[in-house]
């Protein structure tokens, strides 16, 4: 069961709207390394995870990703305030605008809508945790790329916070991988998948 808290994890206060930036940053909402995919990845993977501590990590990181989804939504909302018609066309935001106006919809910057084919839940402890480590790095790179393209301190401040969280999550997943391996046969990690073979041992 979940409960909603009426606050952002980190404040978003953007003075100057900029639809071009919105079109780039929307990728962290619904792109291949975006926050909704991250959340679904961890919240699905945790169910088959046989180690309770790792279930806890996946639950708590997956929940935090939903808060990041909300932060990205707040950034997009503030970047697309009070748009004039010519700004929409000139900035290139028109291709998003025609389908969604200034509503929040999970797509990649390329316009490709969010798809669950962008993540895996393999039901294998090592495969899933290695995917999670890679996912955090890929999201970190996306934030680094956003920071290369965006030149507005209000936007960069929130983006830097989100980037730092990717690094922390990566470290927690490294802990999770160590916990899993401590519970597994060090002579052959691959002979046995504790998420599936648990009844057999």
């Amino acid at each position: 069961m979940w409960q909603y808290e009426k606050r952002l994890q980190y404040p978003v206060k953007i003075k100057n709207p900029n639809p071009k930036y919105a079109q780039i940053i929307v990728s962290q909402l619904g792109g291949p390394d975006g926050e909704i995919g991250a959340s679904l990845r961890y919240l699905t993977q945790r169910i088959a995870m046989p180690y309770s501590k790792i279930v806890g990590i996946l639950t708590d990181v997956g929940t935090e990703e939903l808060a990041h989804f909300e932060m990205i939504s707040a950034i997009l909302y503030q970047l697309t305030r009070n748009l004039k018609q010519d700004e929409i066309v000139k900035s290139g935001f028109d291709t998003y605008f025609v389908d969604h106006t200034t509503g929040i919809y999970p797509v990649a910057a390329s316009g490709f809508p969010y798809s669950a084919s962008q993540f895996q839940s393999k039901g294998d402890v090592l495969a899933d945790l290695n995917e999670d480590l890679a996912a955090e790095q890929k999201a970190r790179v996306t934030y680094d790329n956003i920071l290369r393209l965006v030149d507005d301190p209000d936007v960069c401040d929130a983006i830097k916070f989100l980037r730092a969280r990717e690094v922390v999550h990566y470290q927690r997943f490294a802990d999770a991988l160590r916990i899993a391996q401590d519970n597994m046969n060090s002579k052959n990690f691959y002979g046995y998948n504790p998420a599936f073979d648990k009844g057999k041992k």
């Binding site: 069961m1 945790r46 169910i47 046989p50 180690y51 309770s52 501590k53 279930v55 806890g56 990590i57 639950t59 519970n183």
Partner: peptide, 17 residues
């Protein structure tokens, strides 16, 4: 104790480490 099982989808007999 936050990460102690059982988790809500687990049956009573499958409390994990």
């Amino acid at each position: 104790k936050w990460t102690n099982g059982p988790w809500p989808w687990q049956l009573d007999e499958e409390v994990n480490s």
